[in-house]
Computed example of a mutant assay.
Amino acid sequence: MARGRPREFDADEALDKAVLLFWRQGYEGTSLADLIAAMGITKPSLYAAFGNKEELFKKAVDRYAERRIAFLDKILSQPSSRCAIKGFLTMFTGAEAPDGTPCGCLMVQGALVCSPEGESVKDDLLSRRMSNAKRLCERLEQWKAAGDLPPDTDTESLGRYVITVANGLVVQATGGAKPEQLKAVVEQFMESWPGARSQAETATEIRAA
């Protein structure tokens, strides 16, 4: 039996390029022509390897989520909620972004503007964000049980508050706000955080006084 022709491109590398393009331009703002040019493949190859534009977008979000969630889990595993949440929010300021990595979050800005034809994409991203918010609230409950947060903390409302600030940082970063400006916003937010300050933070504040 004759074997099909082998792919003449690296599918993982092509998908990584699609991730960056969707991240920068969003789902609606990215055309097939844009994808073909950025990924360096032909239209038939794109369809054969990844499906249509919507299927490719979902594969790109899967790739993005794998890496982002692994990093998120590492941040949220810290025993101090204050340190963890500060690290979490800093993710969205662009301050820690490697060269060439877009600002913000693909799951937020990927579908900020969607036509009715893109509703399934918008719904998929909403479902993913809700899942991440649930993970955050569960972690807040763990910090509360461990005594890092006050016993009367409403972790669901606190989690929603954190996510709202994170989404705002994404929009601001995408709109051109500088990382140092957004890091100042994070610092201001952390002033109201109910979790206990670490000894290192307390010592730093004493030296600065």
Rank of each mutant, 00 (worst) to 15 (best):
K43T: 10
G40D: 11
G29M: 05
P44M: 03
S45I: 00
S45W: 01
Q25G: 08
A48S: 15
F22I: 05
P44K: 08
T42S: 15
G26H: 09
T30G: 05
M39G: 11
G26P: 02
T30Q: 07
G40F: 04
A48V: 06
L35N: 10
P44H: 10
K43R: 15
G40S: 09
Y27Q: 04
W23P: 04
A48D: 13
W23N: 13
G40I: 07
M39V: 12
L21S: 10
F22P: 04
Y47P: 03
E28T: 02
W23V: 06
G40K: 01
Y27I: 03
I41L: 14
F22D: 10
M39D: 12
T42N: 09
S45H: 09
L46M: 15
A48Y: 14
G40R: 05
A49H: 10
A33Y: 01
F22G: 03
L32F: 04
G40H: 08
I36Q: 10
A48I: 02
S31L: 00
Q25R: 15
L35V: 09
Q25W: 02
Q25C: 11
L32S: 13
F22S: 04
T30W: 01
D34A: 07
A38V: 11
F50R: 11
S45F: 00
W23F: 15
L32G: 14
S45G: 13
I41H: 10
A38H: 07
A38P: 02
G29K: 03
I36M: 05
Y47R: 13
I41F: 10
Y27D: 06
Y27V: 02
D34L: 03
A38F: 07
S45R: 13
